[in-house]
């Protein structure tokens, strides 16, 4: 699998990086077990070994892994006494839709973090909460609005006055 090869190579590169960086730790002898670079190098080597083993077995991409588990479940499904109940209805959305949603949501969180230094925290939390709720669902906007309002105000006061957390 193409995806598999990329990931295995990535893992190997990471392990090698760890080992090399360990050698570079200032003025330390990697082979002296009492030095700060011994353990990191050791860990790097272990990582390298596991990365190679992973490469051998091959990485599964998400979709193929799901198919495999589905087959797995179909075979074993009758053995388990209490199958996990389906907690959620299946939502109608495409893979692409999911990816867009994920990226936007993550972007919102990052934005939240960046703006923490510039905007009053209570206002910012309200915006973030309301914004992300809207992002995720267009329905019941009023409810989202109210909940965001209550949560941001309530927790702002709790954190500042009860916990004395100083916000930027």
């Amino acid at each position: 699998m193409v995806a598999g090869k990329y990931i295995s190579t990535l893992l190997i590169v990471i392990s090698l990086a760890v080992v090399v960086l360990s050698f570079n730790i200032e003025e330390q002898d990697v082979f002296d077990p009492s030095s700060p670079s011994f353990f990191p190098a050791l860990v790097g080597v272990v990582m390298l070994i596991s990365a190679l083993m992973i490469a051998r077995r091959g990485i599964q991409s998400p979709s193929s892994a799901q198919e495999e588990t589905k087959q797995h479940v179909a075979v074993e499904g009758n053995d388990e006494e209490e199958p996990e109940k389906e907690m959620y209805e299946k939502e109608n959305i495409t893979q692409k839709g999911i990816n867009i949603r994920l990226i936007l949501f993550t972007a919102l969180v990052v934005l939240f973090a960046i703006l923490m230094n510039y905007i009053n925290f209570m206002v910012l939390s309200f915006l973030f909460l309301f914004g992300s709720m809207l992002l995720l669902s267009r329905e019941k906007m009023l409810r989202s609005f109210i909940v965001s309002l209550i949560v941001s105000v309530a927790f702002y006061y709790t954190f500042v006055h009860v916990f004395h957390i100083v916000f930027p």
Partner: peptide, 24 residues
Amino acid sequence: PKYVLMPIIVFFTVIGSYGINNSV
């Protein structure tokens, strides 16, 4: 509903991580 709960959870993780050492 998830669309309400998820943002709130994330909100807490943000505050939680900030609150460790008052650092963004």
